[in-house]
Simulated scan of single mutants.
Amino acid sequence: MTRLKLSPYSPLARLVTAPLWLKSLFAIALVLLLCTYPLSEIVRLQQQLHDTSLSSAELQHQQQQKQQIVALLTRKAEKINTQLAPQTAAKIAALNQRLQSAVTSFSALNIEQQHWQFSRSPLLQLELQGSFYDISHFVAALQQQFTELKLLNLTLQRTEQQPATHAILNLLFSEDTIDKEIADD
């Protein structure tokens, strides 16, 4: 077996021959040096976690602000969409007068109920009472003379107790047709 010869002045030889307290101090320094890397990595990861949580909180705050803005704009858009423009209201008033005179031109036709639902596209529910002949001619005249009204639904009812026919018309007011007719003229 060969023995490792150490020079008396080498660092390892000095460490082996050093007093116990110096060896202990060197061992503690070595352990502390080995522990600093994991500790520094833990500190770095905690700092990164803290930074990430701060940026996440900032992003959530920005998202909440954007959601509030979107909700405000949505409410504003809904309000605009449900409000009736003054020009449309004037057109509906004139249309309503023309519609009344058209109904009175049929002698056996009576308006039971007339109800407007105002929104961006106003809807008219018209309930008529009269003979089937007058109702059918009125609907035909309505489609020819009132192009701004589109027939959505027509319900006819007749009972044995009543000789007259009851009609419910749902009509959609559309300004697009009026604008096209004005452009064509």
Rank of each mutant, 00 (worst) to 15 (best):
R3Q: 08
R3K: 11
P8L: 03
L12W: 13
A13R: 03
V16N: 08
T17M: 07
T17V: 06
T17A: 12
T17L: 10
P19V: 07
L20T: 02
W21L: 11
L22V: 11
S24R: 00
S24M: 05
L25G: 09
F26D: 02
I28Y: 00
I28W: 01
A29K: 08
L34T: 09
C35L: 13
C35M: 09
P38H: 03
P38M: 01
S40P: 02
E41Q: 10
I42H: 06
R44Q: 09
L45T: 09
Q47G: 09
Q48Y: 07
L49H: 09
S53Q: 14
S53F: 08
S53L: 12
S55E: 12
H61I: 00
H61V: 01
Q62H: 04
Q64L: 07
Q64W: 04
Q65S: 07
K66A: 01
K66V: 09
K66H: 12
Q67G: 00
Q68K: 05
I69R: 10
R75F: 10
R75P: 03
A77K: 12
I80F: 08
Q83W: 01
Q87G: 11
T88S: 01
A90S: 15
A93D: 14
A94E: 13
L99G: 02
S101L: 15
A102W: 03
A102R: 11
V103A: 04
V103D: 00
V103W: 05
T104H: 15
S105F: 11
S105E: 07
W116D: 10
W116H: 05
Q117I: 08
Q117G: 14
F118S: 04
F118H: 15
S119R: 14
S121D: 12
L123G: 06
L126P: 01
G130A: 02
Y133P: 02
I135D: 03
F138W: 08
V139C: 00
A140E: 14
Q143K: 07
F146T: 05
F146H: 10
F146M: 08
T147G: 06
L149A: 05
L149I: 04
K150Y: 09
L151M: 09
N153F: 02
N153D: 07
L154N: 05
T155S: 12
T155E: 14
T155D: 02
Q157V: 00
R158D: 06
E160N: 15
Q162A: 14
P163M: 12
A164Y: 09
T165S: 11
T165M: 08
I168L: 13
I168K: 03
N170H: 10
L171T: 03
L172M: 06
S174E: 10
E175M: 13
E175I: 07
D176C: 05
I178R: 06
D179V: 15
E181D: 11
E181M: 11
I182G: 04
D184K: 10
